[in-house]
């Protein structure tokens, strides 16, 4: 399963796609950064409601395949530009973390 395979999910807004050919290893949901640091695995999709620059730093250090900001979490231009600069895949959605997970499970993730 690659990032580009998520494009059929209509509720997902692809805000930045830096690399759509990354192979997704799974999904991690969490907003407590040290919990994410401890338990996240490389190439996972990370679903969170945190949208500040540190989230991008965590995503890069953990080598996540994509950040999904769920629950209509808004992010500013600076955040989006940083994702572009650092080549971090970013999806925005109004879905809750649970609904995101359901969509991803439907794709056999």
């Amino acid at each position: 399963m690659k990032i580009k395979d998520l494009k059929n999910i209509s509720q997902f807004n692809f805000k930045n796609i830096a690399n759509e050919d990354i192979e997704i290893s799974g999904v991690f949901i969490g907003d407590l950064l040290s919990w994410v640091m401890a338990n996240g695995k490389e190439k996972q999709i990370w679903i969170t409601v945190q949208a500040h620059l540190n989230v991008i730093a965590v995503s890069l250090l953990k080598e996540f395949s994509c950040i999904i900001l769920c629950d209509n979490t808004s992010c500013d231009e600076e955040f989006i530009n940083k994702c572009k600069e650092e080549q971090v895949n970013l999806i925005l959605t109004s879905c809750s973390a649970y609904e995101c997970a359901k969509e991803l499970i439907n794709l056999d993730l």
């Binding site: 907003d31 407590l32 950064l33 040290s34 919990w35 969170t48 945190q50 500040h52 540190n54």
Partner: peptide, 8 residues
């Protein structure tokens, strides 16, 4: 900001 889990 998501810090303070006391796990660091």
């Amino acid at each position: 900001l998501g810090f303070g889990a006391g796990m660091g």
